[in-house]
Simulated assay, not measured.
Amino acid sequence: MTSKILLPIDHTDDRSWKKALPFALEQAKFYGAELHAVSVIPEIILLPNLPANYGAGAKDHVSGAVKAILEAGGASDVPVHIEEGSVYREILKLAHKEGFDHIIMSSAKGDFPNFEIGPNLARVVRNAHCTVTVVRD
């Protein structure tokens, strides 16, 4: 049974949430589960040769963008986690640390041979400690 669902959202790519958000809301309602969203700021901000304040305000910007997406999708009460680093690693770390038992991720159209599964999705599916549902585009 599912009690905590994690939905990764990339605010720059509506394919990451257009179909996955309604599906995640449906699953949360069906199971009576908590739904949380996560967005990961790529690790370029953490490179040592960048100025100390590089990326200042990025968390606030991304958080605002994700909250706007959730509000437009009828999910304004969903908690938002903003992480920094490697996308798949941060999703997996958060899911494990916070006890999520279901991750719902959207696929994206890609090039041969990975038509639907990008590298982050593939790594989450391969390494997650819990169920991962892939919502196809």
Rank of each mutant, 00 (worst) to 15 (best):
G73D: 04
A28C: 04
Y31P: 04
Q27M: 15
G32E: 02
I91K: 00
S3V: 12
I44Y: 12
P79V: 11
N49D: 14
E34Q: 13
E90L: 10
A128C: 08
R123E: 06
I5E: 00
V62G: 01
A128N: 06
W17S: 06
L7P: 03
I91Y: 00
D137A: 09
S39E: 06
V78Q: 00
I82C: 05
E116Y: 14
G118L: 02
T131R: 14
N53D: 15
H102Q: 14
H11Y: 13
I82G: 09
G99C: 04
F115T: 07
H129N: 12
V135D: 02
V80A: 06
A56K: 10
P119T: 15
V80S: 09
K4S: 08
A128P: 05
V62L: 06
I104Y: 00
L121I: 13
K93R: 14
L92K: 02
G64Y: 01
S16I: 03
Y88P: 02
S63F: 00
L46D: 11
I41P: 00
G64S: 02
E26P: 00
S39T: 13
N120V: 09
A72T: 11
E90Y: 02
L35R: 01
Q27P: 02
V80Y: 01
L92R: 01
D111R: 14
G85N: 03
L46C: 04
L94F: 05
E90T: 07
E98Y: 00
E26L: 10
F30T: 07
V124Q: 08
A72Y: 04
P51N: 08
D101G: 06
